[in-house]
Design a protein around this nucleic acid. Structure first.
Length: 464
DNA sequence: TGGGGTTAT
DNA sequence: ATAACCC
């Protein structure tokens, strides 16, 4: 944990800082009436090399050694010991071994344990505020505006005077305790520290946090001090933060494609994007993208933290060098399906749509995927859940129809990826107590709903 | 380049 | 159904 920073008190009487407004007495509330300003406090939490951390928890003997997590021929992530020896994320296994012959590799193609730990993190954060948005398996946004406001109201004026930051302040900007926005962000930094401490104490995980007034800035600032540290951004430093990006591709929300198109327009820096003609940008990218990314370039992002809740889809995929026959494809699809049925069973909800995705081999060309989807026949949906053994054969039949719809099996083909996705998940009707349905519904008594992420109990005798 | 996810069109 | 984005 970082030591309390000396400049946390830089806004005390006598210290420099932004000029005090008028003749306001110390700690007099500012002109912005409570509750009437729409400024938010957002925290972004980002676990350190998440897969590697999970592996080190699974097998503590790996701790202290350079560790990489391998999927196929890639080291998808690695711990900090490995990074110090030159291993990078998404590095080829051959290059990684060459750089670091002592590198220990574990296979990370099965995401089950990562997914489970990921949801434990989200669940923990939801104890602080229900407004938690997941981003991948290892990042979460939390909107703590309301909690911060409540804590500030509780504070007495003598406590306000000694309010301190937890962790770093971006750009070493002095804190002004007279500024209500600063006060709120400091409380936010303390709550972020509490979240990180809870993650460490209860799950054994370390990570970074960023606290700012919107998602974009919180995410950008969370990565400033790594690993296992946190940073708060005060509003006066937001321009400094966004201009610290060396290229617009580093802006979250500007991906590979958009960056390429912007580059074709001569836009490569944040400043280029800020000053580019909005009209021309709208014509090139469409009004929606143009307006959104140009706002991003100023550090403006009004997108809400959208609670993720339960997942919208479950998918499993496998990539390989070559799949060129229908029987081969069928056996791979059966494998993917077996794992998926287990997951769907545990979730408790039922998918109403299934999708099959393939990637065809093509030399050089950027890999594009094709997919076909269809409703799951209702009689198959009903077979989902219990042992789901009766569901597998009809599901494979459905999937092979989708397969033959995409791939002409009478012609030679060469696939490099297969993926099966269950989506359009619907809650299983829960029969009301006392009704006829309650006593006739077969699955309701084996479903346990302990909070949001319910699960199916393993076959146990049914009482009650 | 893996094995996932989301939203917009 | 695809394309873009995120990790």
């Amino acid at each position: 944990m970082e030591p309390a920073q000396a400049w946390a008190l830089a806004g005390s009487p006598g210290a420099r800082g932004p000029e005090e407004p008028g003749n306001l007495p110390w700690f007099h509330d500012q002109v912005v009436p409570a509750g009437s300003c729409s400024s938010r406090v957002i925290v972004h939490l980002d676990l350190d090399c998440f897969y590697a951390q999970v592996e080190m928890i699974s097998n503590p003997e790996l701790k202290g050694k350079p560790l990489g997590v391998q999927q196929k021929s890639l080291v998808v992530t690695c711990n900090y010991e490995a990074r110090e020896l030159g291993v990078k994320k998404l590095m080829n296994v051959r290059d990684a071994k060459e750089k670091c012959p002592q590198l220990v590799l574990v296979n990370g193609e099965d995401l089950t344990r990562y997914r489970e730990m990921s949801y434990r993190v989200t669940d923990l954060l939801e104890e602080f505020s229900p407004v938690v948005e997941r981003l991948g398996f290892d990042e979460n946004f939390v909107d703590i505006t309301d909690m911060v406001e409540k804590r500030l109201q509780q504070l007495q004026s003598d406590e306000l005077a000694v309010l301190t930051v937890s962790g770093h302040v971006y750009n070493e900007q002095p804190v002004n305790l007279h500024d209500v926005l600063h006060r709120r962000l400091l409380i936010g930094s303390q709550m972020a520290a509490e979240m990180r401490e809870a993650m460490c104490d209860r799950l054994g995980l370390t990570g970074c946090a960023g606290v700012a007034s919107n998602k974009l800035l919180a995410k950008l600032v969370s990565g400033v001090f790594k690993p296992n540290q946190q940073t708060v951004l005060l509003p006066e430093s937001s321009q400094h933060l966004i201009h610290s990006l060396k290229h617009i591709k580093e802006m979250p929300g500007i991906g590979y494609k958009t960056a390429k198109r912007l580059e074709a327009l001569g836009i490569s820096s944040v400043h280029d994007l800020q000053t580019f003609s909005p009209k021309i940008l709208e014509k090139e990218l469409g009004i929606a993208v143009a307006q959104r990314i140009q706002k991003l370039s100023f550090g403006e992002d009004n997108s809400p933290v959208t609670p993720s809740g339960l997942p919208q889809s479950f998918s499993e995929e496998d990539s390989f060098k070559k799949c060129a026959s229908e029987v081969e494809a069928k056996s791979k699809i059966e494998e993917l399906l077996a794992s998926l049925l287990n997951r769907v069973c545990q979730d408790g909800r039922k998918p109403h749509t299934v999708r099959l995705t393939i990637r065809r081999y093509s030399p050089e060309k950027h890999c594009s995927r094709e997919s076909r989807q269809c409703p799951i026949p209702s009689h198959v949906i009903q077979k989902l859940g219990a042992g789901n053994y009766d569901a597998i054969t009809p599901m494979v039949d459905v999937l092979m129809k989708l397969f033959r719809n995409m791939v002409n099996v009478k012609m030679p083909f060469h696939l490099t990826l297969l993926s099966v996705c269950f989506c359009n998940l619907k809650a299983v009707k829960t029969a009301k107590k006392g009704t006829i349905d309650y006593y006739l519904t077969p699955s309701s008594s084996t479903t346990s709903h302990l909070g949001k992420r319910s699960f199916k109990m393993k076959d146990t005798h049914m009482e009650d």
